[in-house]
């Protein structure tokens, strides 16, 4: 922070020193905002009876998008968890794809309407699905990294999960194997403070989830998950290490879940409104916008243009998904086993 005089602050340009252009940070913000607006629309659609279920990204977009930008999104794998709207958008899933899965329509690229919403998987964008019992994606990510190592492919396997998932056996087994074999995996915990209703203090005894890294022989860092640049920097460093054959990393992004666990949950029974209100003040979508305005690259005009564009993308995607046909019930027998001559 450089002060020129008492009344005017010149905000330090933090992204240039990270090697990010103005266009890149504006694009980061655009995806964060798009994720937020898609999520908000989904709640409206749920409350009006149009879609059955929402599980939100709200409060975690900064970590999701900041991390994704530090990866090679043409080569690397992402194994997201159910809140990662920001990750999947950054990796190439479209708003229309997301709406199709929310409506569980036949054209949904994730599963043709067969899976729960939020179980993101899209072959062409190297997005691999998780499952309903959490953390299944972690050992899968390690397997992909092992395959990459054996095939001498230059790719990083990026896997995300909530802090709750860091208590599953799958986390331990995956992290340990990746550590032993120095595999190119980035384990990113999006610590949003709650496993549905159970607060962090009842989930773990360590001060930081990243403290667990030492047990797996990998570096562990905790960063502010509301700041996409801080997350970008940590993931970039981890990706560089992974590509150099120096092994996995554990990154803990501190965030806050701004919504109830899902559209079927009521969080008033287990957390105070004050706490949620305080967290909203640190919302990464707002603070990053302030940063971009302060350094002069998010102009009023650009902001309006971006908002209008996002609204229209979401409107179109919603209309499309709403009109799209459901999977025909007769297709239930498909994809249980391989088909003759087939897929």
């Amino acid at each position: 922070m450089v002060k020129t005089d008492r009344s005017m602050e010149v905000v330090e340009n933090r992204h240039k020193s990270l090697g990010l252009s103005d266009e890149q940070v504006i694009e980061m913000y655009r995806i964060m905002l798009l994720a937020r607006r898609i999520d908000e629309r989904m709640w409206l659609l749920n409350r009006s009876g149009k879609i059955p279920f929402v599980v939100s990204c709200q409060g975690q977009e900064a970590a999701q998008v900041g991390a994704s930008f530090a990866l090679d999104r043409d080569k690397d794998y992402a194994l997201p968890y159910y809140r990662d709207v920001g990750v999947v958008l950054a990796f190439g899933m479209t708003t229309q794809d997301l709406m199709l899965q929310a409506y569980a329509k036949a054209e949904d690229p994730n599963s043709g309407g067969r899976q729960m919403p939020g179980h993101f998987g899209q072959h062409k964008n190297r997005l691999v699905t998780g499952s309903s019992p959490v953390t299944t994606q972690v050992p899968h990510a390690v397997g992909i990294a092992l395959a990459a190592r054996m095939e001498k492919k230059d790719l990083v396997s990026f896997v995300t999960f909530g802090e709750g998932s860091s208590n599953q056996g799958d986390f331990h087994e995956g992290a340990n194997f990746a550590g032993v074999h120095k595999l190119p995996v980035i384990f990113m915990v999006e610590n949003n403070q709650y496993a549905i209703s159970v607060p962090l203090s009842k989930q773990v005894a360590c001060e930081k989830i990243s403290d667990r890294a030492i047990g797996y022989g990998m570096p562990g860092v905790t960063v502010d998950g509301n700041d996409p640049l801080e997350v970008y920097s940590a993931v970039k460093e981890a990706a560089d290490r992974a590509r150099k054959g120096e092994g996995p990393s554990l990154i803990e992004a501190l965030t806050y879940r701004l919504t109830p666990h899902s559209s079927d949950d009521d969080d008033r029974s287990y957390r105070e409104r004050d706490e949620v209100d305080r967290a909203k003040e640190k919302d990464g979508v707002l603070t990053f916008a302030s940063y971009l305005r302060d350094i002069g690259i998010l102009t009023e005009e650009l902001e309006k243009q971006m908002n209008d564009e996002i609204s229209s993308i979401i409107d179109d995607a919603t209309d499309y998904a709403e009109r799209a046909p459901y999977a025909d019930a007769d297709t239930i027998y498909r994809y249980v086993y391989g088909e003759q001559g087939g897929e």
Partner: peptide
């Protein structure tokens, strides 16, 4: 089959 998706549930 694997448990039916919602549109097929009642039939399944």
């Amino acid at each position: 089959t694997v448990y039916a998706f919602t549109q097929a549930e009642e039939v399944w």
